[in-house]
Amino acid sequence: MKLIPTALTAALLTSMATCALAASTPNLTVNGIITPAACTPNFSSNALVDYGKISRQDLSIDNRTRLRNESLDLNINCNKPVRFALIMRDNREGSAIVNSEIYYGLEFDRSGNKIGMYSLQFDPANTVVDAWPQVYRTDSTTGGQAWSTSRSSAIPIGAQSYLGFTNVAGSTAGPVAIQSLSSRVTLVTYIAPTSTLDLTDDATLDGSATLEVVYL
């Protein structure tokens, strides 16, 4: 007789466990689109900017020192017209002397001090896209959901904001389809004050970033 209540209790516990399990198992949905479009970005000079040896006496003790600007040619060629944007990832994240999405780090000296930072400036005036008479830039801080008013002013390529291109001034419609883009971009580099650096030995500038093409 004692076996019956025990069996009923076991059955009840099993039922409760089943209900709890069903209530805590959400569905996972995976979406995506495979596109035949393909764009290939390339920098001139093998994407290398070399400042060579920089003398300590040419650097400021108490202020950041801006090095000479360097330029690279950026070419993006697509196999068909496609809407895309650019974003850049810092491979030396955490080493820039200013915490901002537009600045990328130059690594650390032997004592772990941040050596400097750089930005990559994009200028529509130095850009040719297909047969457009003029190029305008537009950017998005919402992953492409909304776009800033397109304009002709220069802007640094960011690590969190999309940079897109259009041939329409004053537009918030976002980028238009492009097959070929050529631009002269400018590297702007700053070295930290020498009072904050360990210069008992060479400090090596070792910046590295990856430019990404984001298909829209």
Rank of each mutant, 00 (worst) to 15 (best):
Y136I: 09
W132D: 04
I102V: 15
S95L: 11
L106M: 10
T149V: 15
L163C: 02
V129P: 00
I115L: 15
D139Q: 13
S150L: 11
G105W: 02
M117A: 13
P133R: 05
P156Y: 10
P124F: 10
Y118K: 00
P156V: 04
A96K: 07
Q134P: 03
K114H: 08
E101T: 14
S140D: 12
T138F: 08
P124G: 06
Y136K: 09
P156R: 07
S161T: 14
I157G: 07
Y118L: 03
V128Y: 01
F165V: 01
T142P: 08
M117P: 00
F108V: 10
L106S: 06
G105T: 06
A125I: 12
I115Q: 02
N126T: 04
T141M: 10
E107L: 05
Q160V: 14
S100R: 14
S95Y: 02
G105N: 03
G143M: 10
W147H: 10
K114D: 04
A125G: 11
A146E: 12
F108H: 12
L106F: 05
G143D: 10
V98L: 13
I97H: 06
S119M: 13
F122W: 13
I102S: 14
W147K: 12
G158D: 01
S100F: 12
V135H: 08
F108I: 04
E93M: 08
V129E: 02
T142L: 11
T166I: 03
L106Y: 04
A125C: 01
Q121K: 13
L106E: 07
S150C: 11
M117C: 04
W147Y: 10
K114A: 06
